[in-house]
């Protein structure tokens, strides 16, 4: 098994109100078969041994599905590798002697909690504003009552694959949440079950998104490039269209 010696430039910040700074750490003898988060585990183990506070970072499932891990590696959320989360990144992608910059997801709507940990509760509030289908438990008709064309079901799935990690926001030069919001709206708006609340959903989610202080989409598509689930920016186009239609219908509603 081969090993790497690396230099880490890591954002350290004690809490939400304190000033942060970049600190430099030497990461010696890192096995190439370790994952990126295991590399940080190893560094943390040494920091603890030396009586220092370990680097805090969010992580949980470590298999690319929970959306918890949230770091920007060399300026790119989840690293430059396509279609993966940070926890799926392995050290064999790096070279001996590399310097790696590790920073939190940057967006004013995602305030830093500590070190690399950020608060993404804005996403929850956007979902609460309309990212659902109102169906009371027990009131559903038989699952086969409404056939859904396979193409619609597949399109809905493509959007529903979003893991809510926030990389789209972190990569966007404007910290826009449009890919996240559009993915949820597109998932539900593609399905006949979601049709009834479509207009209200789109209007309310976009209003909440704006209220949270995210920036605006300038169609640069950095979001889809870093999305670990490779969700397409075409969902943003659909959201724009649905929003325009919903606004028009709201304006002329009887």
């Amino acid at each position: 098994m081969s090993h790497l010696n690396l230099t880490l430039k890591v954002w350290r910040q004690d809490n939400a109100t304190s000033e942060g700074r970049i600190e430099t750490y030497e990461a010696k003898e890192i096995p190439t078969s370790a994952s990126f988060l295991e590399m940080i585990d190893i560094v943390n183990e040494r920091l603890i041994r030396d009586g220092e506070e370990p680097i805090h970072f969010d992580h949980d499932c470590r298999e690319g599905i929970c959306g918890m891990c949230s770091m920007t590696i060399n300026g790119i959320p989840h690293s430059k590798e396509r279609g993966i989360t940070t926890c799926q990144l392995h050290m064999r992608k790096f070279k001996d002697g590399d310097t790696i910059w590790i920073e939190p997801f940057r967006a004013n709507a995602f305030p830093v909690v500590k070190d690399l940990v950020v608060d993404r509760s804005a996403f929850d509030r956007i979902i609460a504003a309309g990212g659902y289908i109102s169906v009371r438990t027990g009131s559903a008709p038989d699952a086969h009552a409404i056939p859904v064309p396979k193409s619609d079901a597949d399109a809905a799935f493509d959007a529903a694959a979003c893991i809510g990690c926030g990389a789209c926001v972190a990569a966007c030069k404007n910290a826009s949440a449009m890919l996240f919001v559009s993915a949820k709206a597109s998932h539900l708006n593609h399905l006949p079950q979601g049709e009834v609340e479509k207009d209200q959903r789109v209007l309310n989610m976009v209003r909440q998104m704006d209220a949270e202080g995210f920036g605006n989409c300038t169609n640069q598509f950095e979001c889809e490039a870093v999305c670990p689930k490779e969700i397409s920016a075409q969902h943003i186009a659909k959201l724009n269209r649905d929003y325009l239609a919903a606004s028009a219908r709201e304006a002329v509603a009887p």
Binding site: W11, G75, W101, R106, A107, N108, N174, G213
Partner: peptide, 14 residues
């Protein structure tokens, strides 16, 4: 107003 920059900036495909 929505974002602070990164210490190490990068652009993927814009």
């Amino acid at each position: 107003a929505a974002r602070k920059g990164y210490a190490h900036q990068a652009t993927v495909q814009a």
